[in-house]
Amino acid sequence: MSLYQLSKLLYQLNRDDSLQARFKVDPAGATEGYDLTAEERRAVLDSDIGLLYVLGVNGQILMHFAALCGVEWSDYLQRMRDGVKRHGPVRAGIYTMTTSPDEKVVE
């Protein structure tokens, strides 16, 4: 479990134009230097918003990574619900879900 490293990678991707540019052409290379588990690295490289959410990435970091990946707002919310359905409850952090995966608070 290296949620800190995963969060730091996404935090830096969100704010660093040069890292964003590298991530677009060489995503695997951009994640080098971060001590991630295979599951965490795969979640980033696959832009798997649902898995990243379940792994415990803070929503304030994750929503910007989703925007960076071109994921629209309602789709972002749905991908998190789908992630919980597929991978189970959020494993860490303070951004756990309080509703059921089939419930939509807003469309």
Binding site: N58, L62, L77, M80, Y95, M97, T98, T99, P101, V105
Partner: peptide
Amino acid sequence: HWPATPDSGR
């Protein structure tokens, strides 16, 4: 509020 979670809007 529950921002940036699936509960966003609650």
